[in-house]
């Protein structure tokens, strides 16, 4: 087990190194890195100072090492627009996005898995066909369009829920959260639903396919022969067996949800990282873009790592065998 963990950690570090090289190459390939790192409004004096400070007059490999060093120290430079350190800026927006993404993935999983298991258990029933229709829609209708419809229906026409911003925040550990108060929660509902639809569709498909396959196995037949009710079989046997791919997807989707939040945050004016990156793209705030890329890559590598390791915990066959 320890050897497995170490091996995975090394792999993750390697991928991060490759990603950083890619971002570095990107920054250097696309025009002058000075333009990326220093505001175009800066005076000639400041520019030259920065060139020396950032070592842009050094050979490329030394620059890369310096870039790596700055990354490791968390020094991503200063935002042109906000005039504050980029890392600090992104971190201040992160809780909003995390809250939104987590809520979305939770809704998608908690609703999607039971629906999918049912659709796999009774594939030909009317309810299952309806469930599958929802999943087809969830997959193909663009997120932003669903967001518009949600706003139109629940905020404009019915006036039940607010759309836009985070509402009042309650502070815990110095960070503000929406979900802790009822009113804050009402601000979270629509964007979280919007973002969850794709996850819902995916969880439905995944658990339906898994359940269909498992229902045909001898394991289920044997459990039936022992007199277990179908409800018990679904709850104890099937759910446990499909949990492995589901936890994988849960983890991986958490990452991609953070990315997809870009769209939802823009529509609902949710002040998270996604909104920040869109704003920084339109305002050419390049240090924010670079930092965002590196952080997202880091996030993905970390999530992949965690998912790989939790495999080992869920599947007793892997727990002993270590790296296979």
């Amino acid at each position: 087990m320890l050897g497995y963990v170490i091996q995975r950690l090394l792999q993750a570090a390697l991928v991060m190194l490759a990603m950083s090289a890619l971002v570095f190459a990107g920054v250097h390939a696309i025009g002058n890195p000075i333009d990326v790192l220093i505001s175009p409004d800066a005076t000639q004096d400041i520019r030259e100072q920065a060139i020396r400070r950032l070592g842009l007059d050094l050979p490329l490999w030394q620059q890369y090492l310096a870039f790596l060093g700055r990354l490791l120290r968390g020094d991503f430079g200063t935002s042109f627009v906000y005039g504050m350190p980029v890392l600090q800026l992104i971190l201040s927006r992160l809780p909003a996005t995390l809250e939104l993404a987590l809520a979305a993935v939770l809704i998608g999983t908690l609703a999607g898995v039971p629906l999918g298991v049912y659709a796999g258990y009774r594939p030909d029933s009317v309810a299952s066909r309806a469930i599958m229709a929802v999943s087809v829609l969830g997959f193909s209708v663009p997120t932003f369009w669903v967001g518009l419809i949600l706003i139109l229906t629940f905020a404009v026409n019915l006036g039940w829920l607010p759309a836009g911003d985070r509402g009042p925040l309650l502070e815990v550990f110095g960070i503000g959260w929406s979900f802790l108060s009822l009113e804050g929660l009402s601000f979270l509902v629509l964007p979280a639903l919007n973002l969850s639809l794709f996850k819902l569709a995916m969880m439905i498909r995944l658990s339906r396919a898994g359940t269909r396959e498992i229902m045909l196995t001898d394991t289920v037949k044997f459990a039936r022969a022992a007199g277990l009710t179908d409800a018990t079989i679904l709850r104890r046997h099937v759910l446990r067996l499909i949990s492995i791919p589901i936890v994988t997807v849960f983890g991986l989707e958490l990452g991609s949800t953070l990315a997809f939040a870009v769209v939802t945050e823009t529509i609902f004016n949710w002040p998270g990282v996604g909104k920040l990156i869109i704003d920084s793209i339109t305002s050419l705030d390049r240090p924010v873009m670079v930092a965002y890329l590196v952080l997202v890559a880091f996030l993905f590598v970390t999530i992949n790592l965690v998912v790989d390791l939790s495999y080992a915990l869920l599947d007793p066959r892997l727990r002993r065998g270590a790296a296979a």
Partner: peptide, 11 residues
């Protein structure tokens, strides 16, 4: 494949 397509396109 593990990286969201929309982010890549965005960047």
């Amino acid at each position: 494949l593990s990286f969201p397509a929309i982010l890549l396109a965005l960047v």
